[in-house]
């Protein structure tokens, strides 16, 4: 029982990070039908800045805002340089553009920073645990879960109660009609990328802390988890993205604890197989958005 509870908290902690990443992916997907394979770069670029900052004796108090701000700026910059030029293009083009952006950034790091692992210190409280009876919970998980709840509440408020949120939801449901109703496409798209960058920035703070180091291709795992979580939840559904993130996090942790010792290494493989099964039996994801075929 204790073990289960501990796993649940661990899984929710992991899942919260995935949920933030997936929500960022879903917001952009909703607005321009772009599945952003470059989403992980919103973590690698702030990640290398983190390394640089610690080389220059910054502390986590100043690095955290640096990560969030740089994630937002990176997101806006990528939109401006690459994605704004393929707006309205075919899905095929959009997918490959984002994939190419990922590759350019990763190759850029390889070129100018090098392939070597770049380490930086984790915060002092990172490895601490709190105990309640026989339950040992990592402080890190609790902080992640707490911050995620606050951020999700804030995002919900933003989407439901503000003019920007209304414009974003309208544009996500029907971009052309929203434009005819006076929604400015430029500002709503940039807003979506800024929001996506902000969410990735929050997730990035935790991801970067947990990793403790950066490599040129470190963006791939967070990108993949974010994209998969968005897909598990049902592409196009923001709630689904959050749900998908949590489910993915829980599945990883629970599987790792249930699998026999010999094949624990293969957890990721099993998670993928489960995702494949989910798609076979529920192709649209958990909260699928009904797609009407247009004639």
């Amino acid at each position: 029982m204790t073990e289960l509870l501990q796993n649940l908290i661990d899984g929710l902690g992991r899942g919260s990070i995935y949920a933030l990443l997936a929500l960022g992916v879903a917001v952009v997907f909703g607005i321009m039908h772009l599945l952003n394979f470059a989403h992980g770069e919103l973590i690698t670029i702030p990640g290398y800045l983190t390394y640089w900052a610690f080389q220059n004796n910054w502390s986590w108090w100043t690095v955290v805002p640096l990560i969030i701000v740089s994630a937002v700026l990176t997101s806006l910059l990528i939109e401006r340089i690459a994605f704004s030029r393929v707006r309205g293009a075919k899905d095929f083009t959009l997918l490959l553009t984002s994939f190419g952006v990922h590759f350019i950034v990763a190759a850029g790091f390889l070129l100018y920073v090098g392939a070597a692992v770049k380490p930086y210190p984790r915060p002092g409280w990172f490895a601490k645990t709190v105990s309640a009876g026989s339950l040992n919970v990592e402080v890190f998980d609790l902080v992640v879960i707490g911050v995620t709840i606050v951020v999700l509440a804030g995002t919900t408020w933003l989407l439901q109660r503000t003019m920007f949120g209304l414009a974003l939801r309208a544009a996500a449901s029907d971009f052309d009609t929203a434009r005819l109703m006076g929604v400015k496409s430029d500002s709503v798209i940039r807003g979506a990328f800024a929001l996506s960058g902000f969410l990735a920035g929050i997730a990035g703070v935790f991801w970067i802390m947990r990793e403790g180091q950066m490599t040129p291709t470190a963006g791939i795992p967070p990108m993949l988890q974010g994209v998969l979580a968005a897909l598990i939840g049902g592409l196009g559904s923001l709630r689904g993205a959050v749900l998908g993130g949590l489910v993915l996090g829980l599945a990883e942790v629970l599987l790792r604890s249930w699998l026999p010792v010999g094949i624990q290494n293969l957890t990721t493989g099993f998670v993928f197989v489960m995702i494949a099964l989910l798609f076979i039996f529920r192709p649209g994801g958990l909260l699928s958005v009904p797609q009407v075929e247009r004639v």
Binding site: V86, L96, F99, G100, F103, I104, A106, A107, G108
Partner: peptide, 14 residues
């Protein structure tokens, strides 16, 4: 050469 790949991909997509 690895940058060339990424640049070629994005440039052609655009």
């Amino acid at each position: 050469n690895s940058v060339v790949l990424g640049v070629a991909m994005v440039a052609f997509m655009i």
